[in-house]
């Protein structure tokens, strides 16, 4: 029981503080960075920066037709675990209660048993993503420690969550403590590794789009 007390109290406080510092630091240092001078004239018919930005953010949700057939399965799998993670994190009753605990916000949840199913699918999907990463020659070369570490810290909370609800391996309070601690680890790591794409995907897609649009690329 002591481990659960630590997880519910000090561990979450520390993890939330580091998470907030890290995310705010990385986002603000990017936003405060002075914009580079535009030395070249934009091409004829270049959309406004705002338009290019928004287009860039949304156009990347679907793979470009050139690569569509090659990346189709991978892209689909990525959708499965991203949506799965969203459902498990934000539409599971106990998680909403957790968020309500510090935000005061609440919204409807999905039935518990449905979320358990989604959790299982998510773990399998993450497993497939890892397997591809480890077998595809090109992806293997591009993979660094960051990728494996980020993968592990993402899958751990889902895995321990499934253990909690099924009571596998240890007593409930121990499993719940491990689940919360795995979330703490994820929160602490998130701002400093590739998982920061949770926030940065908007900026990187948008900025890339603005820059390339000026050179005549269409999104």
């Amino acid at each position: 029981m002591e481990l659960l007390d630590f997880a519910r109290g000090p561990a979450l406080t520390i993890a939330f503080a580091i998470f907030a510092i890290g995310v705010a630091w990385r986002l603000s240092s990017l936003l405060f960075t002075p914009r580079p001078h535009r030395r070249a004239e934009a091409r004829e018919g270049t959309p406004s920066d705002a338009k290019a930005f928004v287009r860039g953010v949304f156009s990347r949700f679907i793979p470009h037709k050139t690569y569509r057939d090659v990346v189709f399965a991978n892209h689909l799998n990525a959708y499965v675990f991203h949506i799965g993670l969203f459902i498990v994190v934000f539409l599971y009753r106990p998680h909403i209660l957790f968020i309500e605990g510090f935000t005061g916000l609440s919204w409807p949840a999905l039935p518990n048993t449905l979320v358990y199913g989604v959790g299982l699918v998510t773990v399998v999907s993450l497993g497939v993503a890892l397997a591809r990463r480890m077998t595809n020659p090109v992806q293997k070369i591009l993979t660094t420690f960051d990728d494996y570490f980020s993968w592990a810290l993402t899958v751990l909370p889902v895995l321990t969550g499934l253990l909690v609800v099924n009571g596998i391996g240890a007593r409930y309070e121990t499993l719940l403590a491990l689940h919360i601690l795995s979330v703490c680890a994820l929160l602490i790591w998130l701002p400093f590794g590739k998982l920061m794409h949770t926030f940065l995907f908007v900026l990187s897609r948008g900025v890339t789009s603005v820059r390339l649009s000026r050179r005549g690329a269409t999104f």
Binding site: I21, P94, G101
Partner: peptide, 20 residues
């Protein structure tokens, strides 16, 4: 509720964001 943290998490979140 059991899933809620025993400590107010809004504080470290806000303080962390300002510091960051």
């Amino acid at each position: 509720p059991l899933p809620a943290s025993t400590e107010p998490l809004a504080t470290p979140l806000a303080a962390g964001a300002v510091a960051g």
